[in-house]
């Protein structure tokens, strides 16, 4: 464990808490892409299958349980409890355009051809594009609530911090995982446009508005 990965995990945790807070306080999931939340739930479900077979540490197991449970609660809130506030008309990204190519790629490019490893690889690839429905929805609505932009900033920062973690682990531990690094870079690059808008607008107290 290193400081970059720890701050990254805390940033990820913060993002999820911010989203749940937003939905609970405003009793609404307006502006949130349910499709991205489904993809995140799928990412955790396929990545943490070793939750009961490989014990790494109490921290690792606790965080896995937290991510799996909160992602399911988020999907539940969006599609059941606050369904009336779900903006389906703007959340129209076709999930099959992401899941099918990612699934195929996981089959072709992985570290070893075992079910657990292929599912882990699928999860890594899927996470790198899971935010696309959310970004697509924001480009269609042309704006985002401030709390939603904080959620996205924390979510995008987590994987950017993981890149620093991989640099650290490469130089100090000789650890290197090409699949995780490439996917992590793609994931972070997808946020660049949003990061620019967040830093130039939201941090100056303005509302986040995208050039629709």
């Amino acid at each position: 464990m290193n400081i970059f990965r720890l701050i990254g995990d805390m940033s990820h945790l913060l993002a999820i808490v911010l989203l749940l807070l937003k939905m609970w306080k405003t009793r609404s999931c307006a502006g949130i892409s349910g499709k991205s939340q489904i993809l995140f739930a799928l990412v955790f479900a396929t990545r943490y299958l070793d939750l009961f077979t490989a014990f790494i540490s109490a921290y690792n197991s606790t965080m896995k349980l937290f991510f799996i449970s909160t992602s399911l609660v988020t999907v539940y809130l969006m599609y059941f409890k606050f369904r009336a506030t779900y903006d389906a008309n703007h959340d129209t990204f076709r999930l099959e355009f992401l899941v099918v190519p990612v699934g195929g790629l996981a089959f072709l490019v992985n570290h070893n051809f075992s079910p657990l490893e292929i599912l882990w690889t699928f999860s890594i690839y899927l996470e790198s594009v899971a935010i696309l429905p959310q970004l697509f929805m924001m480009s269609k609505t042309g704006e985002a609530e401030t709390i939603t932009s904080h959620y996205l900033f924390a979510l995008g920062s987590y994987r950017a911090l993981y890149i620093l973690n991989w640099v650290f682990r490469y130089y100090f531990e000789g650890f290197f995982d090409l699949i995780a690094v490439v996917a992590g870079c793609v994931q972070t690059i997808l946020y660049c446009d949003f990061f620019y808008l967040y830093i130039t607008k939201v941090l100056k107290g303005k509302k986040l508005s995208l050039p629709a």
């Binding site: 490989a54 540490s57 570290h111 882990w120 993981y162 973690n165």
Partner: peptide, 10 residues
């Protein structure tokens, strides 16, 4: 075991 150990990231 090494494989499982390696997957120590979230």
């Amino acid at each position: 075991y090494l494989q499982a150990q390696e997957k120590d990231e979230l």
